[in-house]
Design a protein around this nucleic acid. Sequence first.
DNA 1: AATACCGGCGAGT
DNA 2: TCATACTCGCCGGTATT
Length: 374
Amino acid sequence: MASPVIPRVIIGVDLDYFYAQCEEVRNPSIRGKPVVICVYSGRTEESGAVSTSNYPARKLGVKSGIPIILAKRILANYPESVFLPIDLDYYRIVSDRIMEMIRPIGDKFEQASVDEAYLDVSLKSHGSFDGALDIASRIKQEILANEKMTCSVGIGQNKLMAKMAVDSKKPNGLTVIPPGQESLFLSQLPLGRLYGIGPKTEDKLRSIGISTIGELALADRENLSDLFGKKQGPMLKEMANGVDESLVVERPIEQMSRIVTLKHDALIYDFSEVLKPISIDLAEKLASSHLMCKSVSIIAITSDLKIRSRSKSLGEATKSADQIYTVAGELFSSFFKVQGDPKQNEPRLRRVGIKISDFVSVPPAKTETLEDFI
DNA sequence: AATACCGGCGAGT
DNA sequence: TCATACTCGCCGGTATT
């Protein structure tokens, strides 16, 4: 006997063009000008990629992921344009303040990323979408009043629909997808706009004759399972029907990673210079989160931009920068070993990094000592 | 048979 | 043309128990 599904009311919040808006708040004189947040790789003066940009910049074609050099060319005729280096620590502080502010507004809270959150307001809205609309307005007001920042908000009966509502009107949007309207709302959108369908998935779906969300909603489960796997396949169909049973839950940190771009692509490289500060960084982050890790991975991006990884699960949890560094070093050695003879056309390494995962929490009683970091 | 581990892929910010 | 730094989830294959 299936338990009856209790209707839910979910609010999704997305801070508009977050990094760039943080910079606008920090320095209001740049408001209205194209603002580009840059991740400089340090290879050459202008090498690197655009992390994000504000709407005036986007309108001119400067979007996430494009090379900085290209953004500068596009904005060459707009000398008022502002190019700023990314300042993740600052954005994190602003994000934390906002998240703590809105966390108590719902019954349940989930931070989905630095600039996104979901609130389950089923109880506080008394199950009413009109009630949820009032709560959503209040969220927008509070963020504006306290942080001078706009956000986009969406209301739906699950996280997926809340997210689709948020995405449908940005920036400064407030959108409701009333219960029962899910399929109608989704059917008006192109396939690639469904959350979770990127270019690869869209291509694959088109190859089997599915080119609209409406068609996906009616697709054959077996067919989708064969193509996308037995979990992801059926889920695609569910999503196209506006169905999402996932709960709003506090999400523990599952992994931390640090990655850097090398000055020059390398075939074999002495990574100690690069790996040491990364290990210390990660160990500090572990300590401040009161965690230890049981897995260490290395990440390598080759010059052909493919991502490779090697990982090792530790017997015992660690919080030592030194051990993270040592294991990462071993993983890099084994990585190079299996690559075999350094052939002429062997892809070189462009970016290298470390990821730690499989966390266990440290009882907060014990105080950290200096040796723990070394 | 169930679980853990591993390396890769895709998506999103 | 040039192509960051993260985080999360899933997949299939293999190893372990």
